[in-house]
Design a protein around this nucleic acid. Sequence first.
DNA 1: GTTAATCCTACGTACAAACTAGGATTAAGC
DNA 2: GCTTAATCCTAGTTTGTACGTAGGATTAAC
Lengths: 154, 154
Amino acid sequence: MHITAAADYAVRAALILAAREAEGGPPVTADELAEAQQLPRKFLDQVLGSLRRAGLVHSQRGAQGGYRLALHASDISVADVIRAVEGPMAHVRGLRPEMLDYEGEAVHLQSVWIAVRASLRSVLENTSLADVVNGTLPKHVQKLVDAPDSWEQH
Amino acid sequence: MHITAAADYAVRAALILAAREAEGGPPVTADELAEAQQLPRKFLDQVLGSLRRAGLVHSQRGAQGGYRLALHASDISVADVIRAVEGPMAHVRGLRPEMLDYEGEAVHLQSVWIAVRASLRSVLENTSLADVVNGTLPKHVQKLVDAPDSWEQH
DNA sequence: GTTAATCCTACGTACAAACTAGGATTAAGC
DNA sequence: GCTTAATCCTAGTTTGTACGTAGGATTAAC
């Protein structure tokens, strides 16, 4: 139930790319991305490789090379980025929730995990990189952020 | 973003205790719990230790001993059980979301993680052990389960 | 040909996940 | 008090993941 450094870094790098996308300038180098968000350079390399293999970014090798989003920033969700580096969300013991098979008094537990995944998706699949850059989150997401309980620890 | 075996086992053991609570019989032994849900016996031992230290179950040592819920089954949420074994939910790089501090185009990323945690809570804190045993989940949770998209792997 | 960049593979270290082992401790029941 | 049945505690073990680092191969602009 925790978000890895790789996922966090991936989203942050993608946000920089999203912000630069509008300007239509040259591709952004890994050095620039690392500098902009203070990310460990070589680790970022691998994270960017995951994003590329997932088809979320295009890369240009050689001088004047770098990275660009492969899609419009409003067409890439935070969920897409996380899945690119972490794999499927809400795995239980390494299995997708729909693959689980409980017996006895636990039969309905599968439904709980399904609901957990669905609620994660409702936030992460509906929030695009453009939304995060602009600070204009979907209404139901912003509602969650504004609820005072949401900021309580515990 | 994944649920550990320990958390899964903890919930399943707690569900058995919840179901037996109504009967008011003797405490349930770890052997019985392991048998009922096919859980690795010695590993379960440690999981039960976490539940006890979290104050969710009471244990009785010695012959005729075993475990009982420390609270009513409708007063223990699935979130309580998960936190007892996994620690706080939705940690990012080991930090609670409210502790994060992003700069530049990532400033609003914190809100996304806060929303993620809030949406997890909306499911897991409102679903009690009694709810799961009876298969009567809170309305908004059941709604998530019934949405056809929720069962898509994607 | 030089320079600037991505790309690839391997390595390393530390920690967590998922157990297993063995005994110390407690308490019930004869 | 002894046996038995149970929790409790500490430590190991094995495997994988997290979080990086290192070094060079490859590509392309100029």
